[in-house]
Amino acid sequence: MAQFRLQDGKVLAVDLTGDAVRAKNGSMIAYEGDMTFKKLTGGGDGLRGMVTRRLTGEQLEVMEVKGHGTCYFADAAGDVSLVTLQQDTLHVEASNLLCTAGGLRTGTTFTGLRGASQGNGLFTTTVEGTGQAALTSQGPAIVLRVTPQTPLRVDPGAYLAHSGRLRQEFQSGVTFRTLLGDGSGEAFQIRFEGEGLVYVQPSERETLGGQV
């Protein structure tokens, strides 16, 4: 069973004993032992599109790493968070998914409204089952608990992932009417309601709506 460890905040170490993990293509920085690498393409191998669209709309490629030893993963000096799933579903921005244990299923869900308004692509990746997954973010992730009494609003550019029974709704947050008359666009926020966890990063991707 693959063991996920944080080597420091930015490096994921995975100890493998003959089993396999799936990782973002090109994210291997070093390994000890014997490893084999296999490119996974969209749809194949029962992987219903962990391969999804990134911000720019290009395909996110995934590789399977199998072997005995320790493999180290990192992505552009991003900070790594471990998520342990127990018969849960994690919704995550595809570009922020670094590595998933072999036992987890990955898929895609349609989030039309948010995606469309955000310009981020129409799908988010779902990770389901029991096992460990690793996310990367620009800056260490912050995990926020949403309860029915305390809904949460998140800047779309800072959103990483969520789990639990949450409804998400896209709403406009701010109107700018300034002295100069420019910058009068609206800023959008995602509102999360229900019971669950939301992961945000202390930075913002370029989005159309995140202006606050």
């Binding site: 305390t150 809904p151 949460l152 800047d155 701010v174 109107t175 009417r177």
Partner: peptide, 12 residues
């Protein structure tokens, strides 16, 4: 602003 709880309004 990356996220908030509560009743907050933002104005230019």
């Amino acid at each position: 602003m990356i996220a908030y709880f509560g009743d907050i309004r933002f104005d230019g």
